[in-house]
Amino acid sequence: MLNSNYLWIAIMCVATLVIMLMIMPGLIDYLHKIKFGQTEREEGLASHKKKNGTPTMGGLAFIIVPTLVYIVCSFFTPFKLDMNAGIILLAFVGYGVVGFIDDYIIVVQKNNEGLKPKYKYLLQSILAVVFFLLYCRNSTTNIWIPLFDVTIDLKWFYFILVYFMFTAETNAVNLTDGLDGLCAGQMVIALIPFAIFAFIQGLDNVACLILIVIFALLGYLKFNKHPAKIFMGDTGSLALGGFIAAVAMVLKQEILLILIGFVFVAEVCSVIIQVTYYKKTHKRIFKMAPLHHHFEMCGWSEEKVVSRFRLVGVILAVLGLVLGVM
């Protein structure tokens, strides 16, 4: 039975990758045709101005394809759409919808303001509450502390943790999506330890879902690597943030999410630090935030920033995996 599960996972992953590689060129052409292109910020880097007009909303592909593959295959494979998989998919699609609304406004109005921050945050918050209520109907409010191997029941404080996980992670992933291949590549690296955790916990359906999303991202990366032919937009980045937050919650690896996804954490912290410090002193700590732009301003090429961030991501993922299986 175990070998059969692995075979089905391999088939679903390959199918997802092949579908992505087949549909992406057509999606890029269609987005070009309807002029759904990126609009770079006026205050952004000069080197990024050439990206104006590059199709965005590419996240639609790596949301829809793995979601449909999993749901369709759930009817005839061992991987059923249970509560755990359902919550993860709802977070994936739900936050993707919020991102789509934001992208649509940006594309139609041809500016980068998009959905007003207060409305975006409100929608993110509502989804976080919904997922907390759904999850706690069939699970505990315990968290596991790695290294010390201690389990603590947070009771209603668990809601604060989950709320912060979803709202912070979606915004952190969103801010990381600023260079060709950066966000998708980091997400692939970060999701691998969680797939292993799922297998160890016997949650093969969750592991399967994580893996097909990874393969969808690999298909997307072929077209998003430098120079990118398409961007994921907020549609993709918010969806990925919701996805990894839901995965961490379901697998009870909330603490390790911080370590494994620390590249995302560093990106959002750089923005918070920059804005807070500037308001108080009218000076900047970083040459530009988020953090990846700081390194570009220091003279690093886009490819160098992405490769160095990926190296850090791999180190953190390995460290998180080791702590998670100790």
Score class of each variant (00 low, 15 high):
residue 125 S to W: 12
residue 100 F to K: 03
residue 138 N to M: 01
residue 99 G to K: 05
residue 142 N to M: 14
residue 87 I to Q: 02
residue 75 F to I: 01
residue 96 G to Y: 08
residue 156 W to M: 13
residue 108 V to P: 14
residue 123 L to A: 15
residue 91 A to P: 15
residue 59 G to C: 08
residue 103 D to V: 13
residue 99 G to N: 11
residue 128 A to H: 09
residue 88 I to K: 05
residue 57 M to W: 08
residue 126 I to D: 00
residue 144 W to Y: 13
residue 90 L to K: 09
residue 94 G to N: 09
residue 46 A to G: 02
residue 141 T to W: 02
residue 47 S to L: 12
residue 95 Y to F: 15
residue 65 V to W: 03
residue 72 V to I: 15
residue 115 L to F: 01
residue 80 K to G: 04
residue 150 V to R: 07
residue 148 F to M: 09
residue 61 A to K: 06
residue 80 K to Q: 10
residue 94 G to V: 13
residue 139 S to N: 14
residue 140 T to K: 08
residue 70 Y to C: 05
residue 118 K to P: 00
residue 121 Y to R: 11
residue 130 V to S: 06
residue 134 L to V: 11
residue 105 I to T: 13
residue 140 T to D: 10
residue 135 Y to F: 13
residue 104 Y to S: 11
residue 107 V to D: 00
residue 100 F to E: 00
residue 150 V to P: 00
residue 146 P to N: 01
residue 101 I to N: 03
residue 165 M to P: 14
residue 60 L to V: 14
residue 147 L to Y: 07
residue 113 E to G: 00
residue 42 E to F: 12
residue 132 F to G: 02
residue 69 V to E: 00
residue 64 I to W: 02
residue 55 P to E: 06
residue 86 G to H: 03
residue 69 V to W: 03
residue 124 Q to A: 06
residue 63 I to W: 05
residue 49 K to L: 13
residue 117 P to K: 04
residue 130 V to W: 02
residue 116 K to F: 09
residue 163 Y to H: 10
residue 115 L to R: 01
residue 58 G to S: 12
residue 105 I to Y: 07
residue 71 I to M: 08
residue 65 V to L: 06
residue 131 F to W: 13
residue 76 F to R: 14
residue 127 L to W: 14
residue 143 I to P: 07
residue 102 D to P: 15
residue 159 F to M: 10
residue 61 A to F: 10
residue 116 K to A: 10
residue 64 I to M: 04
residue 71 I to F: 14
residue 64 I to A: 08
residue 87 I to P: 11
residue 90 L to F: 14
residue 117 P to S: 10
residue 135 Y to C: 03
residue 57 M to I: 14
residue 99 G to D: 11
residue 120 K to N: 05
residue 145 I to T: 05
residue 110 K to Y: 06
residue 74 S to H: 04
residue 68 L to N: 05
residue 141 T to F: 06
residue 144 W to C: 01
residue 68 L to P: 01
residue 155 K to T: 14
residue 87 I to H: 10
residue 90 L to R: 09
residue 52 N to Q: 13
residue 48 H to R: 10
residue 163 Y to Q: 05
residue 165 M to C: 13
residue 153 D to I: 12
residue 127 L to Q: 07
residue 167 T to G: 01
residue 85 A to G: 01
residue 114 G to M: 01
residue 117 P to W: 04
residue 116 K to T: 14
residue 84 N to V: 01
residue 98 V to R: 05
residue 106 I to E: 07
residue 106 I to N: 09
residue 92 F to Q: 09
residue 82 D to L: 03
residue 97 V to Q: 01
residue 63 I to M: 10
residue 80 K to C: 02
residue 94 G to P: 15
residue 84 N to T: 05
residue 44 G to S: 05
residue 164 F to L: 11
residue 42 E to C: 03
residue 167 T to Y: 03
residue 46 A to F: 14
residue 43 E to G: 10
residue 134 L to Q: 03
residue 70 Y to H: 07
residue 88 I to S: 03
residue 70 Y to M: 07
residue 162 V to K: 08
